[in-house]
Design a binder for these strands. Structure first.
Length: 614
RNA sequence: GGGCCCGUAGUAUAGCUUGGAUAUCACAGAGGCCUCCGGAGCCUCGAACCCGGGUUCGAAUCCCGGCGGGCCCGCCA
C-alpha cells in the first residue's frame, strides 16, 4: 500500500548525463551505459529490439545476482524466434573486448557481465576517495520537497507504535536529501479541535472539579511534575481517562465542545498554547535522543488565524459537488471518488459552522503546494481513508497536485493486542530508550575498563538509541509488527550495535595505521581475495540503494544494505590481514578507509550514531 | 457487511513496484575459529514462499477466489 512516489529522482541518466553536474556519483553508471548501448546495438544488428527502459531497470536491480550485471534474454529471443541460450552464447562470444571494462559470459538465457576485479576496485575506491562524505549522494535535482511526519497530537508521551512514523519520516527525509532534493521537514501540530482541547481543557479546570477517575491519574499531593519527570508524561496523565469519559458523559462532552469552539474562534486561554508547547517539548526531547529534528512546526491554528480555512470553506461551498445538509452542515458529495459508500458524504463544516480536521488539513496542504512542487506525508495505516478524502477535496477545489503518501502499519503491543495507554498495553519510547541505554551501559562496561564514566555514558546512549531506531527501521513499513523487548534490545546480529561496531573497528584499525584521512595510495590489482571483492561490490552499491530507496520510499532497503555492508566488512576483516600484510598493506588500508566512509554515510542516512570506539 | 494492507524455515525478516538463475539475512539449534589488526566478530550444517485456481516458456512476485491477522468505514483527529 506504499504509494509509489513519482519518479523524479535522478536515475542513472546513462544515455545523457546532465551537463550541469558532470561529476560521477555512482561507480556503476559507466558500466551500465556500456552494457545498455552495447547490448542494444548487438541486438539491433540481429534484427532484435529491447525495451531500453526495462533493460535499465533490470541492470539497476541485478546487482544482487551472481554476476555484476546481467541481461535476461528470454523474451527478446523468443520474440525474434531465437533460442535464448544460443543468443546469449552468441552475444557473449562477440562482446567487444576492445576498450570494454567488462567481460561477458553466457549462463543459460542470461548474458552476464563482470567487471574485472581490479577495475571494480579502482573505480569504486577512486570514487569514494573523491566524493568522501558525499559518496552515496546523487546529483542535485533542483527540486524542493516537503516531508511531513510525526505530527502527533501534543497530548502525551510517545509510545513506540506512534514513533514508527517519526523514525520512518526522518530517515526518508535524510535519504531524499542524499538523492538530491532540497528537503524541508514539517511537524504539523494539532492545537485545534476536540482532541487537542482535551488536555488544556482538563488542566484549565480547578482540580476540585475534575472527575474522580481523572484525578486518580495524578500522583496525590503534587502540584506539578517532579524534577526529572517530563512534561509530556505529567500533563498527559489524565488524557486517556478523560477522553474515555467524554464518550460516556454528554454533559462533559458539551462542556469540552464549548471550550473547543472558543479555541477554534481564536479565544483559547493562553494556557492552551502554553500547555501544548510544554507537552510537545517533552515529546521532542525523546525524539531528539533518536536524532530526529524538524525544520518547521506548523501549528494548525495558524490556518484559522490567517483566514485560509475560511477561504477554503468558501471555495468548497462553490465546489461542483458541494451540498448543504438539513441541519446546516456542509458536505461534498464524493460518490464519484471511489470512497467507501458510507463515507461518500464528506462533511467540511459542522452544523455550527466550525471546521473539521479534514478541512484544516486541506488548507494546510494548499499552503504546502504554494511552496513545494513535491509534498510527502508519512501516515499511519489508519489514515488511509483520510488520504483519499484529502485527494477528493483537493480535486473538488480544483487543485491538480496531490501529496504522495508513505504509509506504515502500527506496531502492536507485546501480547499482540493494540498498543493502548488506557489498556496498559503501551510501551513508551522513553522506557524503551532508558532500558536500551542501560543494557548498553552494562555491555560497554564489560568490554572497556579503560574508559571514564562520561565516555561510557556517551557510548551507551548512542548504542541504545541507535539500537531502538534500527529495530524499527529494518522492517518494511507496510508490515504489521509486534513489539518484542528481546528484539528491540538485542545487540548482536541484525542490529545497530553490529553496524556501529563495524565502524568503530574500521576506525581504530585506521588509527593504528596512522591513515585515518583518505585518499590512500593503492594498487587495485592487489585486492583480489573473494572477501575483498564482496566488500568492494557492497561499497559500490550505496548510490544505487539511495536512488532506489528515494524512488520507492522503502527506507528499510537502506537498513538492509547497511547490514550487508557491515557483514562484508567483518568477513573481509576476518579473512584478510591489513596491518600485518606485506605488499598489499597500503591497498588494504585504502579499502578499509573506503569502508569507513561508506559505513559512516550509511549510518548518517539511517540516523544512527557514528562511534569511534565502543 | 464493504474497502485497504500483511501472510516466506522453530522465531523474525529480505526479495514482490520491474515475473527469470541454487529464495536473503539474523536469532534459536548442531559443529568449528583467540599463532591474528576489537569475539558486539568469523566459518560450516540443518530448516521456509498460507490454501486453491488462472495468466505465462517461466509465478514468492501478476490476476481471481478462499483462509488467517491488522487497519478503516465519525458533524473525532
Amino acid at each position: 500500500m506504499m504509494a509509489a512516489p513519482l519518479e523524479r529522482c535522478s536515475g542513472f541518466s546513462m544515455l545523457s548525463p546532465p551537463p550541469t553536474e558532470p561529476e560521477e556519483v555512482d561507480p556503476w553508471e559507466r558500466p551500465c551505459t556500456e552494457v545498455l548501448s552495447g547490448v542494444s546495438a548487438l541486438l539491433k544488428e540481429r534484427g532484435l529490439s529491447i525495451d531500453l527502459e526495462a533493460l535499465r531497470l533490470e541492470l539497476e536491480g541485478s546487482s544482487g545476482g551472481p554476476a555484476d550485471l546481467s541481461v535476461p534474454l528470454h523474451r527478446v529471443a523468443r520474440q525474434g524466434g531465437r533460442n535464448p541460450a544460443e543468443l546469449a552464447a552468441e552475444l557473449a562470444g562477440v562482446w567487444p573486448a576492445r576498450g570494454s571494462t567488462l567481460s561477458a559470459s553466457a549462463k543459460g538465457a542470461y548474458l552476464n557481465f563482470d567487471a574485472e576485479p581490479a577495475t571494480l576496485a579502482a573505480r569504486t575506491l577512486e570514487l569514494i576517495g573523491t566524493r568522501r562524505e558525499r559518496y552515496g549522494f546523487l546529483r542535485s535535482t533542483n527540486t524542493s520537497v516537503c516531508v511531513e511526519h510525526t505530527s502527533a497530537n501534543p497530548n502525551g508521551p510517545f509510545h513506540i507504535g506512534r514513533v514508527r512514523n517519526a523514525i520512518i519520516g526522518d530517515t526518508y527525509a535524510r535519504i531524499l536529501r542524499a538523492a538530491g532534493y532540497r528537503v524541508t521537514v514539517h511537524y504539523y501540530v494539532d492545537d485545534v479541535g476536540r482532541q487537542a482541547a482535551v488536555i488544556s481543557w482538563i488542566w484549565s479546570n480547578p482540580r476540585a472539579q475534575w472527575p474522580p477517575a481523572a484525578l486518580a491519574t495524578l500522583p496525590p499531593g503534587r502540584e506539578g511534575p517532579e524534577a526529572g519527570e517530563k512534561a509530556d508524561h505529567y500533563y498527559g496523565r489524565p488524557y486517556p481517562v478523560v477522553s474515555a469519559l467524554l464518550k460516556e458523559d454528554a454533559a462533559l462532552a458539551a462542556d469540552l465542545g464549548e471550550y473547543a469552539r472558543k479555541v477554534e474562534e481564536g479565544h483559547a486561554p493562553p494556557a492552551h498554547r502554553e500547555l501544548s508547547e510544554r507537552v510537545l517539548a517533552g515529546m521532542l526531547a525523546s525524539l531528539a535522543r533518536l536524532g530526529i529534528q524538524y525544520d518547521e512546526f506548523v501549528w494548525e491554528s495558524r490556518f484559522l488565524a490567517d483566514g485560509s480555512v475560511d477561504r477554503m470553506i468558501a471555495r468548497l461551498k462553490q465546489a461542483p459537488h458541494a451540498v448543504q445538509e438539513e441541519n446546516g452542515a456542509w458536505a461534498i458529495d464524493a460518490s464519484g471518488y471511489g470512497l467507501p459508500q458510507e463515507s461518500s458524504r464528506l462533511i467540511f463544516t459542522r452544523a455550527d459552522g466550525t471546521s473539521l480536521y479534514a478541512t484544516r488539513d486541506l488548507a494546510y496542504h494548499e499552503s504546502k503546494f504554494a511552496s513545494f512542487p513535491r509534498v510527502i506525508d508519512v501516515l499511519g495505516a489508519d489514515h488511509l481513508l483520510h488520504s483519499k478524502v484529502l485527494d477528493a477535496l483537493l480535486a473538488e477545489v480544483g487543485e491538480p497536485r496531490r501529496p504522495e503518501f508513505v504509509f506504515y502499519q502500527y506496531i502492536q503491543a507485546p501480547g499482540g493486542s493494540k498498543m493502548s495507554t488506557r489498556a496498559g498495553t503501551a510501551v513508551y519510547l522513553d522506557d524503551l530508550l532508558d532500558e536500551a541505554v542501560e543494557r548498553a551501559h552494562t555491555e560497554v562496561l564489560a568490554r572497556r575498563e579503560d574508559l571514564d564514566d562520561d565516555a561510557v555514558g556517551e557510548i551507551a546512549e548512542a548504542v541504545g538509541a541507535s539500537a531502538v531506531r534500527y529495530s524499527i527501521l529494518r522492517v518494511a513499513p507496510d508490515k504489521p509488527v509486534q513489539f518484542r523487548w528481546e528484539e528491540a534490545l538485542s545487540f548482536e546480529g541484525r542490529t545497530a550495535p553490529f553496524l556501529l561496531y563495524s565502524y568503530a573497528r574500521a576506525t581504530t584499525l585506521l588509527h593504528k595505521a596512522d591513515r585515518l584521512d583518505p585518499p590512500h595510495p593503492f594498487e587495485a590489482g592487489q585486492l583480489t581475495a573473494p572477501e575483498e571483492r564482496r566488500l568492494l561490490r557492497a561499497l559500490s552499491r550505496l548510490p544505487g540503494v539511495v536512488r532506489y530507496s528515494a524512488r520507492t520510499g522503502h527506507v528499510h532497503a537502506l537498513a538492509t544494505y547497511a547490514h550487508e555492508l557491515a557483514d562484508a566488512f567483518h568477513s573481509c576483516y576476518q579473512a584478510v590481514p591489513v596491518l600485518r600484510a606485506g605488499a598489499e598493506r597500503e591497498s588494504r588500508i585504502a579499502l578499509v578507509a573506503a569502508t569507513r566512509i561508506t559505513l559512516g554515510v550509511t549510518l548518517d542516512l539511517l540516523g544512527l550514531a557514528r562511534l569511534e570506539r565502543m
